[in-house]
Structure formats: C-alpha cells, structure tokens
Simulated scan of single mutants.
Amino acid sequence: MSVVTTHIRWVRRVATLAVVLAVAALVVPDSAVKPTEIELVKVNRATGVDYPEVSKDVVWILAVGSDARPGEDMTHTRGDALQLVGMNLKTGAAAAIGVPRDSWVSIPGYGSNKINAALYFGGPQALGDAVGALVGVQPDYVFVTRFKFFQALIGSIGGVEVDNPVAFSDQYLKPEGFKQGKIHLGPYDAMAFSRIRHNLIRGDFDRSANQQRVLRGIQAKVRARAKEPGFIENGVLHVLQYLHTDLPPSELFQLGQALAQVDPAKITNCVVQGGIGNIGGASVVLPYTDQAKRLGDRARNDATLESCD
C-alpha cells in the first residue's frame, strides 16, 4: 500500500470523525455565542468513583454544547444538550443516553448542583465524572462545541429529515411550529427543533429525545452522502479548522474507525427520566437514578439499549 493511499484513507477516517462528532454534539444553548469552536478532550477516570469495567470493544463519548457568551471559555461554562454516546467497534451498534441538563446530582469534588454546572466548575473532566456517576458509565472522551457550528454543519450537509411524533411550536423560536410526521429541517429549524422545550409535554425530557431524533437524521444524511465526490473532504476542511484536540493522530484514527462502522439500523437511544422539583428557588430535574444506572448497565458492554425503563 502506497504512502499516498494510506494518507487518503487516514484523511477520510478523520473526516468521518470530525463530521459525525460535530453533529452528534447537537449544540442548543440559550444564548448568543461567538464564532464557531469545537474541542475534543480525553478524560481520566474520576478519583474515588468506582466504575464497572467497560468492554474494550465499546467507546463512549459525551457530546455537550456550551452556553458560553462571547469571550468566555466554552469548556468552563454551563453545559447543554448532554448526550452520552457509545459505539461498538465490532458490531457497529451505537447507543445514546440523553441526560436532562437541569438534573440535580452529586458532582464529584464539587457538591450537589445541576449537572450542567459541572462544566463550569471543573471543565470536561468534571462533567464527564458527573455523567459517569449518574449513569455508571464514564465517557472516554468529551466533545464540546457551540450551536452556531451545529447550524453551519446542518447547512453543509443539506439539512436533515426527522420523524416528529407530535406537533409543537414556540412563540420566540418557531411561531409557526413543526408539524407531526416526517419533516425536513434546515440549519435554523434543526437548531430550533433541538432547542425548544417549554411547549413540550415533558419539557426537557422531550427536548432531549428531539435532539436524538436530529442526531439520527444527521447520521443518516452523512452516511447517505459519504460516497459523493468531495463530500467528506469538504467536510473535514470545514470542521478541522475549528477543532482543537490534544489527541494524537493514531487515536483520532481509531475514533474515526469506530464512527465509520456505525450501522443506522443498530442505533438505539433513551433519555434519563425524572421528576420536577425546586431547590433553592430553582426548578430542577430529580433524575430517576435507578433507571439511569439500568441504562448504563444495559449499554455498557455492547452499546445497545433494548428498552428504556
């Protein structure tokens, strides 16, 4: 195999990594942000937290949006749109576990707070620890970005199709609303569809499920267009100019392999459920920790969720 051929294959794998991870983040913060930025960070196991062993065949990535204002470090502000994604290197299966951002949890080393505050307190490591403590599966990597990048990426792939289970609207983001059934989402609509929660029956729980619907739509579009001449190459040029990571090329290559092997027919997803409470005058989600742990137990070794209860 020639050096040129090897290089081309490596570029395609890294391109797949960049494109799929970027869209998987589904960034939907509630504030204006500065020009797009994305970061991929490898995290270490939390000190003093006992995590069950994870199969070496499964890679876990926590995709999270940051609601950083202009001039703020997006890796040390409140996180948003938390999706823990596992990928099975052997079977091509993938599982996404959505975590409501207002979940009131214990953040290792920082006391109790809304789970999205972990990013503010201790960066990607602390957020990875908090999600790991809730679900019982700690991510190997944390992927952080801003919603403007998400919109730009949706535009670059020609939008996505989703199956919307119930019609809904928002007087500020989408007054005309989204109809029930299969719909096409362009850049703005994909952001609004993923961001709206106030008019949904289950609020943040349904919003997290909508984010997963958009994620599936993106994965399907990227896979469908991957063989088009220049599609992957243009994607990597668009994404990598914004990507900051300390990972070596060999590790990016391995992640790219995992992402390239995901089979759309083997993607399953669930959202951690809970009750609504009030702590210190703030509305919070009181997550069903037993259910969260069951989801982690079911998906830990094969990235498959047979049920969400």
Rank of each mutant, 00 (worst) to 15 (best):
A224M: 10
H244P: 05
K221V: 04
L240Q: 04
S208L: 08
A220V: 07
R207L: 00
M191N: 08
Q212F: 07
I196N: 01
Q254A: 15
L215V: 13
L247D: 11
D246N: 12
G230P: 00
P249T: 12
S208H: 09
E228A: 03
V222D: 11
I218H: 10
R207D: 03
H238F: 13
E233R: 11
A220T: 09
R225L: 10
D204K: 04
R202E: 10
Q241F: 00
S208G: 14
P249F: 14
R223K: 15
F193Y: 15
A226H: 03
L255E: 07
Q211L: 14
F205R: 02
M191Y: 13
P249W: 10
H198R: 12
Y242P: 07
R197M: 05
S208M: 12
M191W: 13
G217V: 06
T245L: 15
D204G: 04
R216T: 07
I232K: 00
R213F: 11
V239Q: 05
A220E: 11
S208A: 15
R216V: 09
F205C: 05
V239A: 03
A209W: 14
L215R: 10
P249V: 14
P248Q: 10
R207T: 01
E233S: 14
N199Q: 09
H244V: 13
A226P: 03
S194H: 06
L259S: 09
N199A: 07
G203W: 01
R197I: 01
L200S: 14
Q212L: 06
L247M: 06
G230A: 02
G230I: 00
A260G: 14
G217M: 06
R213N: 06
E251Y: 04
L252N: 06
L237D: 02
R195A: 05
N199S: 12
P249A: 14
R202F: 07
Q212K: 08
Q241T: 11
I201W: 02
L259D: 08
R225M: 08
A258Q: 15
R195G: 07
L237W: 02
N199I: 09
M191S: 07
A258P: 14
D204H: 04
G256N: 08
P248L: 12
F231G: 04
K221G: 01
F231K: 02
A209T: 13
E251D: 06
H244S: 15
Q241W: 00
E233V: 12
P248D: 11
H198E: 15
L255N: 10
Q211R: 15
A226F: 04
Q211G: 15
V239E: 04
N234Q: 09
V222M: 10
A190K: 02
F253M: 06
H238N: 11
R202C: 06
E233I: 11
Q212W: 08
Q257I: 14
A260K: 06
A258T: 14
A220W: 06
M191H: 08
F231E: 01
A220S: 11
E233Q: 12
G230T: 00
P248S: 13
H244R: 09
I232T: 01
F253Q: 01
I232H: 00
A220F: 03
V222P: 10
P229G: 03
S250G: 11
R213A: 11
R195E: 05
L240S: 08
R213E: 06
I232M: 03
V222H: 12
